[in-house]
Design a protein around this nucleic acid. Structure first.
Lengths: 205, 205
DNA sequence: TACCCGTTCCTAACGTCGTTATAATTCCTA
DNA sequence: TAGGAATTATAACGACGTTAGGAACGGGTA
């Protein structure tokens, strides 16, 4: 009975090898080197074989985008262990920019307008959820009630992306961008604390 | 004697027509339609003629990027006429995002990692300068001394780009992105005002 | 064992891209 | 008017994503 299951296993295995090869090419040589023929060569197949595992190049790239977000998610979870809510926020900012610096080509396709907007939103969702959790606990810790929570999250997310882009677009170095991101986050959080109607009594016991 | 000057004039004219045709294709049909052959067809020439005016496609695209920044600059200058320094800042934020929404494909190539980083910095400089002037007058109006002025500018620039990207990447609609940008700017400015060592005496006469 | 059918794979090809070589044509100048 | 430079188009090259066609393989049945 296990004859067909083995075939399926082999199929899944080559599919995985294709993704890994594509990922390796992307990270080491950039998006220009990421061609179907190159990937096929690396996994020792001919080009059309790739199309048995992916409908087209976009589908394969989407897989890399998903991988990138999973990677970012794991780094975010790591940063989320910081107990202090303020430092946690600045650490995630720094981590985000660091990711963009350490995986520039991955970061590039993760924010490539060519990939479908809905798909990108879908794979980015878990990462944004971490950000939401962190903002929730931060606002709770400081007795800050945000006028519009989702809006606040989108502002943070956009800000992080924008400042990370300064780095990967070559406007500033990555170290400086990390500094900028931390500073920007501190400023925004300070702004939110300040604009909260000054009901400034500390949380009663 | 004017025979050679006419030739030069014609040359310059064709060059300009190529740029305009390229711009039209880009804005109306997107970057995928922006091919040398298509542009050449639109100006009623064969493809190789384009290479008499531009070293390669990148050089032509760079011209479009420069055009985009000039366009953005003119809109910024318009927003800069607002007398109130605070409203001026939020207006520029709104204007930036609006530009990204009204010229999505132009905005895309203006921030395309494929175009040379140095060249992009160069053509973006005048636009950033406007932002710098506005921040200067804002901080003066509020007696705010920014710890690091350039850093503050880069934070603003990055934030605007990031939030505008939320729109053109399809995460949020353009109207919402404009709202986010204004809100983000207000928050950041509030943060800077707050963190300034509370020498809170109003500007003495 | 012999056949057969479905899967897997490769070669070849199509159309498009950016770009270049080559040749024809045009237009000014001497 | 003859010659030479500038201008133009045709054809081609290599690389891309993608598809068509057929060869090879491998397990289930006679």
């Amino acid at each position: 009975m296990p004859t067909s299951t083995r075939r399926a296993r082999e199929r899944a295995n080559t599919r995985e090898r294709i993704i890994e090869a594509a990922l390796h090419v992307l990270e080491t040589e950039g998006i220009a080197a990421l061609t179907i023929r190159r990937i096929a060569t690396d996994v020792e197949y001919s080009a059309p074989v790739v199309y048995q595992h992916f409908a087209n190049k976009d589908a394969l790239v989407l897989e890399l985008v998903a991988h990138g977000h999973r990677l970012m998610l794991s780094e975010f979870r790591q940063a989320a262990q910081e107990p202090d809510t303020d430092r946690r926020m600045t650490r995630i900012a720094s981590q985000y920019v660091r990711f963009a610096g350490e995986h520039p080509h991955l970061f590039q396709i993760m924010n490539d307008p060519m990939v479908d907007a809905d798909e990108r939103r879908r794979v980015a969702e878990p990462v944004i959820d971490v950000l939401k959790e962190m903002l929730t606990s931060w606002s709770a810790a400081h007795d800050v009630v945000l006028a519009d929570f989702d809006q606040a999250c989108e502002i943070l997310w956009g800000t992080l992306y924008g400042i990370a882009s300064l780095s990967y677009l070559g406007s500033v170095g990555n170290d400086r961008a990390r500094c900028l991101a931390e500073q920007a986050l501190r400023t925004i959080l300070l702004g939110w604390r300040t604009e909260t109607p000054a009901n400034g009594r500390p949380a009663s016991s």
